[in-house]
Each structure stands twice: as structure tokens, then as C-alpha cells.
Amino acid sequence: MTRLRLAILTTLTMITFAGNSLFCRMAMKETSIDAATFTSVRLLSGAAMLWMLMSLQRQSPLHHGSWRSASALFIYAATLSFAYRSIDTGAGALMLFGAVQATMLIAGFIAGERMTRIQTAGFVSAMVGLVILVSPGVEAPSVLDSILMLVSGIAWGVYSMLGRGQANPAAATAGNFLRAAPMTVALSLLALPWLRLDAQGVLYAVLSGAVTSALGYVLWYRVIQHMQAITASTVQLSAPVIAAIGGILMLGEVFTRNLLLSSVLTLGGILLALRSGKTEL
């Protein structure tokens, strides 16, 4: 894969990740749908989309993926939805991707990967940018919400690491979503007393599952084959910045100097990490 193509696919993937945050935030904050239903509709919609794509290619998705990856996917999606019911969006994004960072950096370190000085500078720059992004008006989240968001980030980091080395990323993603389907149905049954349906919330969940999750994760499984864990973890720090920009365009949020500074520091730090990181082209 050429460097340009890798950069384009990575950018598209980060946009889908940001889209997931936006859809979840809009559903939990602006509609009455409950978190369990949102999670179930999201994962079931993703499973249906991927099953359809695999059927067109005459592939059996259950021959790919794993129960470990499916479990990590389910835990990530469920805890994210419940955490975003009340947690401040900026603080949640920082905790989520901070946990992803820590998980993938530890995994990379165990695998023998080490940061160069330039990569370290890029990582620090990106983290400072995120701190600036979420600092204004951040309210201290509850302990439970904080734990849920951290667990979500750890689960996503594990899912990303398990996805490296997959020969067929699309089929592996489809297999993982299909395996996660009974888990999310069980969650909805347990949460049945708190069921709250909302048409707009369901629409957000379908878009999150079928588009930004299903298709986005196929792209992520593909690009991560060509990155070190350290580089892959740093790249994901762009998602909160993109989500913040999306909030401005879609939710009418205010563009601030802090957002501009945060974007420059975060995206600049990622550029340093990518330019000095070793990628398989």
C-alpha cells in the first residue's frame, strides 16, 4: 500500500470514528432512546450491513473473526453508550482515547516497539492538544461514568490489537459483529424495564452501526495492518478533534481559539509520529 493511499484511508477511518462519537452524543443527549437499545440497534445494524456485503462476495463471515474480538467490540460499544448518557463529551473523549493510547502503547512495548524522540515529541504534542480541547468548562464526571469510559477505551484498544494480522479485514469485522449480536440482544433483554424507543435515536444508531461502525471498522482493520501499534494509537487521537469540528458543523457548537490550537497541536503531533514511524508500504 502506498503512503498516500494509507493516509487517505486512515483519514476516512478517523472521520468514521468521529462520526460514531457524534451519533452517540446526539442520541444520548437529544433523544430519549436508552443506552442498551442504542447499543443493540447499532451493533445489529452493523452486523446486517456486513452480512449483506459478505453475501454479495459469497463469503461466510463466521469463518473469520473471533469471540475474543467480538467480546471486546461489544464491551466497547455498550460502555460507550452508557457513559455518554451523562458524562461531559470533551472529558469522555479524552478518557476514551487516553485509555486506547495506554492500551496500545503497552501492547506495542511488550511486542518490542519503542518510540523515537520525534515520535515521543509528537505523542506529547497530541496529548497536550487534547487537554487544551477538553479543558474549558469540563465538569468532573461521576466515578461510574469515568470507569465506563475507560473500560470502553481499553476494549477498543484490545479490539484494535486483535485486528492486526487479519488476512481478510472485511470478513473478520463481519464475523465479529455477528458474534456480538447475541451479546447485545442479551443486554437489551436485561435492560427491558428501562426500554425507551425514539425514532430519531434509532436512526442515529442505525447510521452509527451500518455506516460509521461497520464500514469504518473494515477500513481500520485494513490500515492497521500497515502501522506499528504506537503509530496506530497516536493516529486515533485525531478523532476527538474531528468530532469537535463535526459538532461545530452539525450541532452549532462555537469555534474557539482553544479548538484551533488543539487541532494544530494534535494533528501536528500525529504528523510527526507518522513521518518518523515505520510503516509497511
Rank of each mutant, 00 (worst) to 15 (best):
M1W: 07
A7H: 15
T10D: 05
T11H: 04
F17G: 07
N20L: 14
M26I: 06
M26P: 05
A27H: 06
E30L: 05
D34H: 10
T39Y: 07
S40T: 15
S40N: 11
V41G: 00
L43D: 00
G46L: 04
G46Q: 04
A47G: 06
M49A: 12
M52R: 08
L53N: 06
M54L: 10
H64K: 13
H64L: 12
H64S: 14
G65Q: 10
W67Y: 15
W67C: 06
A70S: 03
S71Q: 06
A72C: 05
L80Y: 05
L80G: 00
S81V: 03
S81G: 04
F82Y: 12
A83K: 08
R85K: 14
R85A: 06
I87K: 04
L94I: 07
L96W: 06
A99D: 04
Q101R: 01
A102V: 14
M104Y: 02
A111N: 11
M115S: 02
T116L: 00
R117W: 14
T120K: 03
G122T: 06
F123R: 01
F123Y: 10
F123P: 04
V131Y: 09
V134D: 06
S135P: 11
P136V: 15
V138P: 08
E139D: 08
S142C: 09
S142T: 15
L144P: 13
L148Y: 02
V151S: 00
V151R: 02
V151F: 04
G153L: 01
G157W: 12
V158Y: 13
V158I: 15
S160G: 13
G165W: 08
A167L: 09
N168H: 15
G175H: 11
R179F: 07
M183T: 01
A186S: 13
A186E: 10
L192I: 09
W194R: 02
R196L: 03
L203N: 12
L203S: 12
S208Q: 07
G209S: 00
A210W: 11
A210C: 03
T212M: 12
A214V: 09
L219R: 04
W220C: 01
Y221P: 04
M227D: 00
Q228R: 10
I230P: 03
P240R: 05
V241W: 12
A243Y: 09
I245K: 03
G246H: 09
L249V: 13
M250F: 15
M250W: 15
G252D: 00
E253D: 03
V254Q: 05
F255Y: 12
F255R: 02
N258D: 14
L261V: 15
S263F: 15
L272G: 03
L272Y: 13
A273R: 05
R275I: 04
K278N: 11
T279S: 08
